[in-house]
């Protein structure tokens, strides 16, 4: 049963990652791309979780936490950057 689940989740995660990558490539604005990259990181973390659950180890747990930290720092930084850059022409 676990092998079936592994194959099924692999297919679903691959489709989801393809959708997120399409949105990163096509996204009209920078913020859309940041959001899609965040989703891609969440999908990667989910795939690591499924690997841990099926193979019954905990080696990737720190990696999952680190991925969530990276997503947080990345989106906050880029959001701050966009806000600063767009406000400059209004003030001058």
């Amino acid at each position: 049963m676990m092998q079936t689940v592994l194959v099924l989740t692999a297919v679903i995660f691959s489709l989801a990652a393809a959708g997120a990558i399409i949105r990163i490539a096509r996204g009209p604005s920078l913020l859309d791309r940041v959001l899609a990259a965040d989703v891609l990181l969440a999908i990667l973390g989910g795939a690591l979780c499924v690997d841990m659950a099926v193979n019954r180890h905990l080696n990737n747990l720190m990696l999952v936490v680190a991925i969530s930290i990276i997503g947080f720092i990345g989106s906050v930084t880029v959001a701050r950057f966009v806000a600063d850059r767009r406000e400059q022409p209004d003030e001058s």
Partner: peptide, 17 residues
């Protein structure tokens, strides 16, 4: 749980698109 969690990711990707 694993399949539903994976379907959540697929739903997010479909919503993004």
């Amino acid at each position: 749980f694993m399949v539903v969690g994976a379907v959540m990711s697929l739903g997010a990707a479909i919503g993004l698109l």
